[in-house]
Nucleic acid binder design. Structure first.
Lengths: 129, 129
DNA sequence: TAGTTCACTATACAAAAGTATAGTAATATT
DNA sequence: AATATTACTATACTTTTGTATAGTGAACTA
């Protein structure tokens, strides 16, 4: 488990560098990578939609309530840059463009699992007290 | 595992409600709760700092590089509202105020673990290809 | 050939998130 | 009595993020 080590995390933001020498820098990067992929209003709905099977621009636009083409386009580009989504161009006439989750994209469900678990637990604790 | 069910998630943002009837609504809430707690520029550094043992306002301010008192105050209030942090007032003269992570706050490390794991994996895949 | 679909882009704007800088009130220290 | 520390708050501003609305160009369809 990383938890013990995580206590030494975030050295980039923490000042007392001497004491945080042993901090695993790559963990900070890993957390930031993950947050970049899932933060923002539309990233998760897009990922969920792609998991759900909708993969053309139009499909996504119809499937995700109130998203504008600008946002959809922008977010898809970012997700592609981040290696989470792949844009495939099929050379039919007319060309058909499909967006697919990469392996990494699909495996982000593991993070969702952790978030669901924590969220449910937390809600129970807060309501319970 | 929640993964299979997660495919039916995000009904709040998805239009085709008939097909998503079986969606576990509480999972969506759980994910949103979790994201609320960890998103923003300063939430994780604050949580990390508190784990690390720094718990007075001044400590946190010195420990978190470049945070302004306005942001620290604002974020601590939000974290308190969300049940992640507890503000304790000790009736000494002068009063001493300490911020502590609640049980929920501490357990958010499990989410971090998942994010570290995914982030490292993802980085390896992206660099590796 | 007029209209429709697909896959976007452009421009302008509004709202949310974060920053900079200064100030306050209570107490303690010299 | 003057200065310092703690725990903040207030005001104004900038940056980032997201929205609204319209338009483009290529192909297809009636």
């Amino acid at each position: 488990m990383y938890s013990e080590l995580f206590k030494w995390l975030f050295m980039s933001r923490l000042k007392e560098m001497k004491e945080v020498k042993s901090c695993p820098r790559q963990y900070v990067l890993a957390v930031n990578d993950t947050l970049n992929v899932i933060s923002g209003k539309w990233k998760l709905p897009i990922i969920a939609s792609l998991l759900y099977g909708k993969n053309r621009f139009k499909d996504l636009q119809e499937n995700i309530d109130r998203i504008t083409p600008r946002m959809l386009s922008k977010e898809l580009k970012e997700l592609e840059l981040n290696g989470v989504v792949e844009r495939k161009v099929y050379q039919t006439r007319p060309v058909r463009i499909e967006y697919e989750l990469t392996e990494s994209g699909k495996s982000i469900l593991s993070v969702m699992d952790a978030m669901i678990e924590w969220g449910l637990d937390h809600r129970a604790k807060v309501v319970g007290t």
